[in-house]
Design a protein around this nucleic acid. Structure first.
Lengths: 198, 198
DNA sequence: GTTACAAGTCAGCGCACGTTTACTACTGTT
DNA sequence: AACAGTAGTAAACGTGCGCTGACTTGTAAC
């Protein structure tokens, strides 16, 4: 209850504000296209604060990635085999705090030009894929899980920057059936899975 | 047979050279990250020639998109229902002129910041999806076709800029089975397709 | 009320980018 | 051989970017 009244100057709050608007910009426009002046204006503060709180534009981007990674890992850990499609649908088109949820996914495929960041990204994608692959014990499972993940990222892309209809405005419910079929087709009961390569 | 010997100065050839190296750069790095000086150096010519032959960087990008669009449309027109997965696998990981084939796909999701170009992009994606959707007459078919397309684009992304293993180095043969299952699951025999939403 | 420090602002630096202008060199024609 | 026209070059211009250092203002402690 202490100090809960609004302060006109609050470092923690502005830092958080910067994180959120930056995350939104980076996810929608990509790293290179987003300028620090845009971000500062969105947050309603001066540009210099970005350098102060996050060292640099790249530092801010990395901070955005960190929060996104944490979210995604949490999602992945709590997902059970039967859940996969529903969790993906929720993340892509979940209603409650949309479109914040999808932003995390989009950050995964926005490159900053920094090799260390790309390495982090690969790490997260790989971890999520392997978690997904645990659903089956198949040696090909990781590859198939990565295809599921790739599909999810692709859908997120088409909905955000490309805005291809009708996918762009499909609801969570409308996405659930196709995603279920996709996951089922790729990781569920064997169809072509067990047959030898032609 | 006329004038087939190599000329040291050949406008048509340099123009073509610029188109090819630009397409590669744009596909790999995106529009904003690629500089005209990079492109000119790759082509081994002076920067000013980009302005001369394509008016501007954006003009060059648009020219790249035009060639990619033509290729993709041609692919789409010649695809039969049973072919879909094979054509996609070939485009993603086709051996003969790889990785040129995949570049066309990647250009579809690289944004230039120009709204007219984005409109073109949406148009092509939409056309390809509708063509894909003709496989079935289902009203939901376009949505499902777009999911197939999104998956394809996502895979291309993971192979190029993200380089997530094992997807990044999977061969055409290795991709064929998962893609077949994906297409089958989404557009083939009804599984959850006909059952009402939960 | 005064003081000290943190929060926030302002103006500008340096650099890399896309583009342009003035120039040089090659090539086919007569 | 001289010319004309085009292919290609060199250098610089203007702009917008990320970032910085000196400054101002709010806030909490005494």
């Amino acid at each position: 209850m202490a100090a809960e009244r609004e302060r006109r100057r609050d470092a923690g709050r502005t830092r958080q504000q910067l994180l959120e608007v930056a995350r939104c910009r980076f996810a929608r426009q990509g790293y290179a296209t987003t300028t620090v002046r845009d971000i500062a204006e969105d947050a309603g503060v001066n540009v210099a604060l970005i350098s102060r709180y996050f060292t640099s534009k790249e530092g801010l981007f990395k901070a955005c990635l960190d929060t996104a990674f944490a979210e995604i890992r949490r999602d992945a850990e709590q997902t059970t085999p039967n859940d996969v499609a529903a969790v993906l649908a929720r993340r892509i088109a979940g209603a409650e705090d949309s479109p914040r949820r999808m932003e995390g996914l989009l950050l995964l495929l926005r490159t900053s030009g920094d090799e260390r960041i790309d390495e982090m990204r690969r790490g997260v994608l790989r971890a999520v894929s392997e978690r997904l692959a645990q659903v089956t014990g198949d040696p090909e499972a990781v590859l198939r899980a990565e295809v599921v993940l790739a599909a999810t990222l692709g859908i997120a892309m088409m909905r955000s920057s490309l805005q291809v209809q009708p996918l762009a405005t499909a609801t969570e419910q409308e996405l659930l059936a196709p995603l279920t079929d996709l996951v089922e087709g790729l990781m569920g009961q064997p169809m072509t899975r067990r047959r030898p390569a032609r």
